[in-house]
Design a protein around this nucleic acid. Structure first.
Lengths: 151, 151
DNA sequence: CCTTGATCTAAAGTTAGGTTTAGAAATTAC
DNA sequence: GTAATTTCTAAACCTAACTTTAGATCAAGG
């Protein structure tokens, strides 16, 4: 027997704290690609622990799984990622996070200046449609916290 | 005919930018309570425009509908809310928002200090289990971005 | 060898926050 | 007094991110 034949999915689950079902799901979403042993069971590298950890962190930062897959595609495919590789793709997270903090901060300032001031009239209100429209496939809100223009 | 018999749901939808179906859904969730006219149709007050606007803003701040219902319960039930009433319950939003900004900022700083430094070893990492565990009914992540303690 | 535990696949179920659909009844417009 | 719009309810459907279930196969221990 070799030094290592790789981790079974249960072992990886224990190492990462993820559920086995979640790990399989991530594979279906293209976030991780184990090989299979002779019996058809998944086998993982130790580097995959780090990969899944990265997925969990990125999720806490609010990235969707497709977004995370995109970020991970920045890793080298031909070798085990080095610490430097991880640092490099983490820069993208940093940017994402900065932007989210920025948006929320702007939102908070508007809350102070808008609801806080008691004006409450505002089609003009900056709180309306705060530019990062995550869910904009339908028609979003139009006039917030007040009467419509023609009223 | 009186000066006003209230807004029909379609009118409220146009005023707020929400879909009619969303307004009915919010009612089912206890966020708004119209009365019914003789024919059984929903009729709304003008103050409900503001109420729904508040719902939309609170959602953008990341509150769930149950949380928003809770915040709205702080409004007076016996009269139309005044600007001061809205300011009062908005304080809760402000606190919520401050906390979220705080969490994200802490997360960002950890990203810098942790992934950024390249240590990548860390059961000790502060990124692990960043204290606001929103979705903690199962067992969450245990060791992030690295090898397990016994490795 | 046999039993127990881990893993496999596919499909269905879950929660949040809604939307869509269908058929009926109310309202409005002409 | 029709015809066209709205609105009504209930139930089914939708996406994201998973979990659960069922029945079968694989792997490991004694």
């Amino acid at each position: 027997m070799a030094v290592s034949e790789g981790l079974a999915i249960g072992a990886l689950a224990r190492r990462t704290g993820l559920a086995v079902s979640a790990i399989r799901y991530y594979e279906a979403q293209g976030l991780i690609s184990p090989w299979r042993n002779a019996g058809g069971q998944r086998r993982y590298q130790r580097a995959d622990i780090r990969r899944l950890s990265f997925v969990m962190i990125a999720q806490q930062f609010g990235l969707t799984l497709p977004e995370i897959r995109e970020v991970l595609s920045g890793l080298p495919g031909n070798r085990t990622p080095t610490p430097q590789d991880w640092q490099d793709i983490s820069k993208g997270l940093r940017a994402h996070l900065d932007q989210r903090i920025d948006t929320l901060t702007r939102l908070r300032d508007n809350l102070d200046g808008c609801i806080g001031c008691g004006c409450l009239s505002l089609p003009k209100c900056a709180l309306y449609n705060p530019d990062d429209r995550a869910k904009s496939n339908g028609s979003g809100p139009r006039y917030l916290m007040g009467d419509s223009p023609e009223a």
